[in-house]
Amino acid sequence: MESVAINRITNAKVYIDGNILLGQVEEFDLPDVKFKFSDYKALGMTGSAEFFEGLEKLEARLKFNALYKDVWAKAAEPGKVVNLMMHAQQQEFLSSGRAEPKPVVIHVSGAFKNVPLGKFKQQEPIDVEMNMAIYYVHLLLDGQSVMEIDILSNIYKVNGTAVTSI
């Protein structure tokens, strides 16, 4: 009988330029890596095809529960690149029990696109969302590099191997 592994991540820590944002970030939406494809058709072909052309722009979103001086000071400088790191533990559940948790680390670098001052309602936490243009993403699972994208350096790697120039 084949064993099924169920993986779960239920919490994470977020750091900005090496400083922890513990208890400050409610949500962290990391970039969706979307591939660009272009149509190709030529004489003699019975149809058309799509081929990889590069990546769409990368964006991230952070939701905060209050205004934090250190974060807003970085965000208020247009074009200033900041480094974010998300660190989590991935739990793996097997039919034989729970395995050792494995680290999940995602590094992103980019610039804030907005500086919100919040939406205030009586007796409710404020709702503050910041968006970032992302230039660099690096996903590490259990200490191994799975995907690395550096738009400005023209790097796109999967499992440490260059896939294509972008």
Rank of each mutant, 00 (worst) to 15 (best):
M1Y: 11
E2G: 07
A5Y: 13
I6M: 11
I6P: 04
I6F: 10
I6K: 15
N7H: 15
R8M: 14
R8D: 14
I9C: 14
I9L: 14
I9D: 06
I9F: 05
T10Q: 14
N11C: 08
N11V: 05
A12F: 15
K13M: 10
K13G: 05
K13I: 05
Y15L: 09
G18A: 04
G18H: 04
L21I: 05
L22C: 09
V25W: 00
V25P: 00
E26K: 09
E27T: 13
E27M: 09
F28N: 01
D29N: 15
P31V: 03
D32T: 12
V33W: 03
V33I: 14
K34C: 08
K34V: 12
K34M: 07
F35E: 10
K36D: 05
F37E: 10
S38R: 08
D39W: 04
Y40N: 14
K41G: 10
A42F: 06
A42H: 08
A42M: 07
G44V: 03
T46L: 09
T46V: 07
G47P: 02
S48N: 12
F51R: 11
F52W: 10
E53C: 08
E53S: 12
G54K: 08
L55F: 11
L55K: 05
L55M: 12
E56T: 07
K57C: 06
K57H: 10
L62W: 01
K63R: 13
A66I: 04
A66K: 15
L67Q: 15
Y68P: 02
Y68W: 08
K69I: 04
K74L: 09
A76N: 10
A76P: 06
P78S: 09
G79P: 02
G79L: 00
G79V: 00
K80A: 06
K80F: 03
K80G: 02
V81A: 09
N83K: 15
L84M: 12
L84S: 03
L84T: 03
M86D: 01
H87D: 14
H87K: 11
H87P: 02
Q91S: 11
E92S: 14
F93H: 14
S95A: 13
S95L: 13
S96F: 08
R98C: 07
A99G: 11
E100Q: 15
E100T: 14
K102G: 03
V104W: 02
I106E: 00
I106R: 00
I106G: 00
I106A: 00
H107Q: 10
V108M: 15
G110H: 04
A111E: 03
N114F: 03
N114A: 05
P116T: 02
L117P: 03
E124N: 07
E124V: 07
P125W: 04
V128K: 05
E129M: 08
E129I: 07
M130L: 08
N131T: 08
M132V: 04
M132I: 03
A133K: 08
A133G: 09
I134W: 01
L139V: 13
L139I: 12
L139R: 12
L141R: 10
D142I: 01
G143F: 01
G143A: 00
G143T: 01
G143Q: 02
E148W: 03
D150K: 05
L152K: 15
L152F: 07
N154V: 04
I155Q: 09
Y156G: 00
V158W: 00
V158T: 06
N159I: 02
G160M: 03
G160L: 04
T161H: 11
T161F: 11
A162E: 12
A162R: 13
V163N: 01
S165Q: 15
